[in-house]
Simulated assay, not measured.
Amino acid sequence: MAEPEGGPEGGDRAADPATAAFLAHRNLLFTVAYEMLGSAADAEDVLQETWLRWVEADLAQVRDRRAYLVRITTRQSLNRLRTLKRRKEAYVGPWLPEPLLTAPDVAEDVELAENLSMALMLVLETLSPTERAVFVLREAFGVGYDEIAAAVDKSPAAVHQIAHRARRHVDARRPRQTVSASATRAALDAFRRALETGDLQGLLDVLAPDVVMVSDGGGIKRAALRPTVGADKVARFIVGGTGKAGVTITGDPTVVNGNPALLVRVDGEFDGVVAIRVEDARISGLYYVRNPEKLTRVTSETPLTLH
C-alpha cells in the first residue's frame, strides 16, 4: 500500500484515522528522517517504511500517535543510517547533505534553521547512528528521554549519557555564536560579487583565514577530492575556476535548509548550490554541492517543521 499524498483534509482519506494521523505529522516525520540522514531521497524511503508499519498498528492501543510515529521513523532512520554509512565509505570525494529549498518561515525559525544548516548537518555526520538519533530527537525536537529510549532500544539512563556525550561532541565543533540571517546574507552577497567578478582580493576580504571549502561532485561532476583549507588557497581555487576565458559565473540568492545560499550558474547553466558558515562576519565554511543527484530539491520548496 503506497504512502498517501496531500494533506489531512484530503477528502475521504481524512475519514481514515490512520491516514489522517500520518498526514497530520508527515512534515515532522520527514524533518526527523532528513536531519538524521542528510538525504531527502532516503528520508522519503523512511516515510514509506513508516507508513507501512503504521497502517498495521492497532490504533486503539496507541496513546500518543505523534510519539508512536516518531518512534517508527527513528527506528527506520537508524536502519537506513547503517546502510548509508557503507554507501558513504564508497563515495567519491567529500560527502555533503542534500540541499533543500525551504520556505521563508523556516528561515524565520532560528532554532530550525540552525539545526538544518549545512554546517551543523556535517557535524552530525561525525556522530554514531545512535548518538545522532538521540541528539536530533532531544536537541531539535525536544522529545523526552523515555520516548527516545523506546525509539532507540536503550534505557532512559543510557539515553541521558548518550545525549550528554553527543551534545559535548557537537558543541565542540559547532559555530561558537548564532549568526543572524542578515549577517549571513551580507557575507554571502560579498562572496557573490567577488565570485562573479573573479575578484581575488574581494574573496580574501570575506573569507576567514582558516576557512574550509568542501565540494561534493559525487564522482559525477568535477570537485576537489578533499577539503581545501585557508583563505589564500580557497580564493585562488575559486578564481582559478572562474577566471577561464569566456566563462560567466553568476549566483542567484536563495534559501536552502533555512539559511541563505546561492544557486550557481556557469554560462547560464545551473551548476550547484553554495551554502556557507559565518563566524565574526567572515565565511569560515564553504559548502558546494555539484552532484546532480543531490540537486533535485532546490527548485520547489520542501516543507519542514519541528512540531
Rank of each mutant, 00 (worst) to 15 (best):
L23E: 13
Q177A: 15
M118T: 13
V106P: 08
A107Q: 13
A158E: 11
Y287A: 13
R80D: 02
V32F: 05
A113M: 14
K233P: 00
A181R: 13
Y68L: 02
P209G: 13
R277D: 13
R63A: 12
V229T: 12
E131P: 07
L122E: 09
S300H: 02
E35Y: 00
A231F: 06
P17R: 06
V234E: 11
I238N: 03
G198Q: 04
R226M: 06
A40Q: 14
A67Y: 03
E293A: 14
P8A: 08
L200M: 09
A119L: 09
G7V: 15
L124V: 03
A21M: 05
L96S: 10
T74K: 00
M121Y: 05
T19G: 11
A60T: 15
E269M: 05
L37T: 03
A57G: 01
P227D: 06
L116I: 15
L120T: 12
Y34W: 14
G38Q: 08
R173N: 14
E35N: 15
K88S: 10
L306H: 01
A103C: 03
G243V: 03
I220C: 00
V92N: 09
G6L: 04
V32W: 03
L286Y: 13
G93K: 09
V179L: 06
R86H: 00
M121R: 09
P209K: 06
P4G: 03
A194M: 09
I148D: 01
S300T: 09
R132Y: 08
V136D: 04
I220M: 06
A190N: 08
P209C: 13
A20Y: 06
L122G: 11
A157I: 07
G217A: 12
G251Y: 02
A231L: 06
Y91Q: 02
D105I: 00
P99C: 11
L137C: 02
L286F: 12
V62W: 10
R63Y: 04
R265V: 00
R82P: 01
R193V: 06
T248S: 11
R132E: 08
D210L: 06
L116E: 12
A163V: 06
R65E: 14
E89K: 02
L304T: 09
G243I: 05
D216H: 02
L116W: 04
